[in-house]
Nucleic acid binder design. Structure first.
Lengths: 217, 217
DNA sequence: CCGCCCCCCGCTATTTTTGGGGAGTGGAAA
DNA sequence: TTTCCACTCCCCAAAAATAGCGGGGGGCGG
């Protein structure tokens, strides 16, 4: 994969191309053309929690130019300065890629140039980048099958109802009332949902159901 | 949008193109070239809970040929027969599109032909279909901005830590221990996060933090 | 400088949730 | 047909979360 991404970088004539996987446990995996120093630094400092590219793409539908992200905040600006120092370009374009169970990856192109040149580049290449991002993601999953086939046991309709209402802030009594069942029955649903999700408590179960896309609030 | 999708259908020379948004709350929205009768029937019967295209794409990363879905089960086969009766093609290719918070849409091409012809068609057009699916989804969201997620007030770093660990399933004692603060202090963070998020309880706060992308678990 | 927010700590009392049990129905799949 | 699984209901004791009160120190921007 490393050779592929380097070839793609040369093809697009950008400074960097990076594929970066972030999973629900906070594990990271990726390959790309950033320097090893920067990658190590990034992981060591746990920048994934700070990086506006991650944060921004996580709550966005569409590919995004880094210029449109929120770079305010002292820590963020320090991070940005450090990134540029380590050779990350001042421009960037990141494509969020999502899979089942909240699986999430980014495909990023980064370069050093002025705004206008970058805009032109993106306008010209965004379609190809989108296709390649998805194709690359597919290949990456083929090579790392462990990441994909996380057993996504479906919740039963009643369990979905229960989780959804809990995620909406109702307590058990209110949820039971909404569903017109006894609180005891509701508890069985919550417990079985928790078991299916491998969660330690209700909050955990709701969090997992949300990040796996099993419920929507 | 309706005119656009009809033009696209004619361009690809397939029987149907459909864009179908669905979330686990059961809300649906879409446009496409299926007959109104079938659409009404589909909604009325709540087929979204049965449809192997929905179920299958929901747990899959990549676009999928309908042939590879699981059509076993009595109700499913009845559904399939009924769909064909209403004019849906015997072949189909569906592209899952995901957004933040488990938001989920499908872009589907369907046609009546034999397996081989369909395979050739897909091989030839899958790239274009992927691009168009994403582009169409973007346009659809522009017209329906309500569906896009809201951006929200930032949490403090400590609040993010607290929410994150709670979302990972730890209880307050464990979280306090992880953060090396007293449980009483932790409680203040949780409460302030809850206030900022307008949440009724901890589970609600974690759910909101997650779905607003303020924390990543 | 002052106000605001972030960071940290303490107490008590009440309400809610959780973790163990157990039991019976009906429907769908193998 | 038999075996699952979803769905419904029940009890009790222990643990966890919530609501209310109080305190102090530090940094940053108007």
């Amino acid at each position: 994969m490393q050779a592929v991404i380097e070839a793609l970088r040369d093809h697009f004539r950008v400074d960097h191309l990076v594929y970066h996987w972030v999973d629900s446990a906070g594990d990271q995996y990726g390959c790309g053309t950033y320097s090893d120093d920067w990658r190590d630094r990034y992981i060591e400092q746990n920048y994934v929690r700070l990086d506006p590219v991650i944060i921004g793409c996580y709550s966005r539908f569409h590919p995004v130019d880094w210029k449109r992200l929120d770079w305010s905040g002292k820590a963020v600006r320090a991070f940005q300065a450090e990134a540029i120092e380590y050779g990350v370009g001042n421009q960037g374009y990141s494509i969020p890629i999502r899979g089942p169970n909240g699986q999430f990856a980014l495909f990023t192109a980064s370069h050093n140039c002025d705004d206008q040149a970058w805009t032109v580049f993106i306008e010209k290449n965004r379609r190809d980048l989108l296709l390649i991002a998805h194709e690359f993601n597919r290949k990456a999953l083929e090579f790392e099958p462990d990441r994909a086939p996380e057993v996504a046991r479906q919740l039963s309709p009643r369990e979905i109802d229960a989780m959804t209402l809990l995620a909406m802030g109702y307590n058990r009594a209110q949820v039971a009332d909404s569903l017109s069942i006894s609180e005891h029955t509701l508890r069985v649903y919550i417990e079985s949902a928790r078991a299916k999700l491998g969660a330690m408590n209700t909050t955990h179960a709701v969090a997992r159901a949300l990040s796996r896309g099993l419920i929507v609030v």
